[in-house]
Amino acid sequence: MKIQDGFTIDAPAADVWALLSDPERVADLLPGAKMGDRIDDNTYSGGMFVKVGPLAVAYDGTVSFQLDESERSVQVRARGRGKRGMGTAEMTMTSQVIAHGDTRTEVTIDSDVVVTGILAQMGRGMIQVVSKKMLQEFVGNLTKALA
């Protein structure tokens, strides 16, 4: 499932890029995400906790970052295995920082979310809603962090 989002903010592109290219800070802004140990240059262990009312799923997995300094673009790829046999989740999120003059910056976010297992089967469209909401919160947190 592909989700496109983005925002424009009154901040210099360099500041925005400095934040978005720092894996640990990005992880802080993702709701429910927890960054673990660094596995290699680009990869960390990590966890994700999603709670929707009585329904709660915890994923354990890895997060990898691919930075493209020249394009000011970062691809975050998170892969997790749900605890208690709850299936898998994989998210690829590509963010690009585009300068509009010196003080205005646009960030585009393209995400692709693949959820398998019982949540995808029984979710009645829930994954779509939850993914969108998480992304919106992320954008909100990002905006706040840059303000």
Binding site: V114, V115, T116, G117, I118, A120, Q121, M122
Partner: peptide, 14 residues
Amino acid sequence: YDEDGNNLAGSFMD
């Protein structure tokens, strides 16, 4: 099935 191969009628709910 959805494009990821999830069975969308895997219980008597669906």
